[in-house]
Design a protein around this nucleic acid. Structure first.
Lengths: 239, 239
DNA sequence: CGACACCTTGAAGAGGTTCAAGAAATGTGG
DNA sequence: CCACATTTCTTGAACCTCTTCAAGGTGTCG
């Protein structure tokens, strides 16, 4: 729970290009190193922030994977996204001073804590940071457009194919294999994100295996035919 | 196409509370009056901006209703939202310097044009504006979370009930009746937004009429039993 | 090593889609 | 201003995809 004491510096961080603006001069870089107030380690299952919690900071993921979920009054919960290293969480809290979703670690993880008041103050001095904050927010809006398209118009196979490709692409951008994935989430969490039941996710995985698109051993998935998977993910049918 | 010449001033606008920050001093207010570079009138069906168009400005709706849509390579299109007076469009363009969705007028309309470079410049001087821009972006993220929940876990009746209530609430906040609505969009557009076919939307409207929840005469809808409609919109079943 | 969570697979069923036809509005041109 | 063309909406019936319910298998963690 307690943020670590030792000094953290974005300028030395190998994830800098993922969370921070690029093309800044040395002077601005030094200012930016004050953005991160501390870090926090989480164990698998720990809640980074929950619905209704007061909003104070944005969080940049250093290591680990998270899920964000929203919930209805009756207790039903839905996954709205899976986040990995370099991605920013907590944007939902800006509008109303408290969080409107939950962020839960799917494996042991570490995040950088960036007090939002500090971000706003520094944005007034560093145009590149202001621009960056705007882009991070806009990117999340565009990402969610994609999810809406997926949920609103794709069938089960298309959804899962799109999901797997999105996952591998993001992992690849972080230096991991683009064909081998270890899923950090359950079938139920995948299903919740894709608007499907866990049984449907399982069955669809099995169908992909039958068709020679992927190999599945529980959480370990290997992409065998990325091209055909890609064709599935961009549906040709005219529903 | 050509923006109007006469001076526009947010400080005199009756929609100010909807699009602009509140609680600013007179000095800041005067600065803000320079934000709107002009206005643009659109006829029903006109495209305000389209996918791929260069991003330059955000747009605040003065009058009329819009739909925003995203499309896949194969030409399938999905409605991502319906916007009305006081709401801001174009946020999707910030991240990549070009728009990633389409905005189309569903009736004759007028928008205020706010060049984004200008917004960013002024944000560095006026903290309330910076904060406001952040909130507008965050609000859109939270709104889309709600749509994801709707698309991912609700059944047809629940979706349409939630849609109608959302619509009437927003209209009510703008001084219109909360029980009488004239829909500006077709059944097909509603269905696209809700992840349903137009026939399903039509049938569900008919069912609501049978059940005495609403009255429907083509585009004219009257809410008869808002409470039961609200119960439908927050599903009690445990899927 | 045992308990628990997670995953797979089958069979039956429901909700929504598809295809089709006709009715009601809307808009357009004479 | 009216007649006609077009778009939009409604409704029915068959079909299909995904869900539900159920049972057994596999992996993981204390």
């Amino acid at each position: 729970m307690k943020p670590e004491a030792f000094k953290v510096a974005c300028s030395n961080c190998n994830l800098r290009e993922l969370c921070m603006p690029v093309g800044m001069d040395r002077d601005e870089m030094i200012k930016l190193d004050t953005l991160v107030a501390g870090r926090r380690r989480l164990a698998k299952g720990d809640v980074l922030f929950g619905l209704g919690a007061p909003f104070q900071s944005l969080f940049a993921i250093r290591t680990g994977t998270f899920k964000t979920t929203v919930s209805t009054e009756n207790g039903h919960e839905q996954v709205t996204g899976f986040q990995m290293a370099g991605e920013i969480m907590g944007l939902d809290g800006i509008v109303g001073d408290h969080h409107t979703c939950n962020a839960v670690a799917l494996e042991d993880a570490e995040v950088c804590i960036m007090p939002f008041e500090h971000i706003e103050a520094l944005s007034m001095e560093v145009p590149a940071l202001q621009r960056h904050v705007h882009k991070v927010l806009s990117r999340e809006i565009v990402r969610e457009h994609g999810v809406m398209l997926l949920l609103g118009s794709m069938r089960a196979e298309e959804r899962l194919a799109a999901f797997m490709l999105n996952l591998t692409q993001r992992l690849h951008a972080r230096g991991f294999s683009s064909t081998e994935v270890i899923l950090r989430m359950t079938r139920e969490e995948i299903g919740s994100y894709l608007g499907l039941k866990l049984e449907t996710v399982s069955r669809t995985f099995s169908k992909f295996v039958e068709d020679g698109l992927i190999e599945v051993k529980h959480r370990h998935v290997r992409i065998v035919d990325a091209e055909r998977l890609g064709q599935l993910a961009t549906p040709q049918h005219c529903r």
